[in-house]
Amino acid sequence: MRLKKNIATSDEGFIFNPGTGDSFSTNEIGTEIISLLKENKPQEIIIETICAKYDVDQNQFEKDLDDYLSQLKDYTILE
C-alpha cells in the first residue's frame, strides 16, 4: 500500500493525479495521512501518529482510516 509515484500533493490538501487528470481536495488529517504515506510509513505508525496528536479513539480512527484508504484506492491514488 503506497502512494503512486507521480501523484502531486500540496500542504493545503490539494492532490493531482496526472495519470487520470483528476484533482482532489482533502482535509488536514487527510493531508497528514498522505504525507505519512509518501514517507512509506506503515499503517500502525499512521494510526499511532494521528491518535497521539488528535482527540480520537483508536478504534474510531482505524475505521475512518480504512474508509479513507479504500477511497484513495478507488481514485487510483494508492497502488
Binding site: 483528476d22 484533482s23 488529517i29 495521512i33 496528536k53 482527540d55 480520537v56 482510516l65 479513507y68
Partner: peptide
C-alpha cells in the same frame, strides 16, 4: 491538549 478530530475525507474537485 489534543487537536480536535475530524475524520479524513477526500473529494474529487468540482
Amino acid at each position: 491538549g489534543k487537536i480536535r478530530y475530524e475524520r479524513p475525507i477526500i473529494q474529487r474537485m468540482n
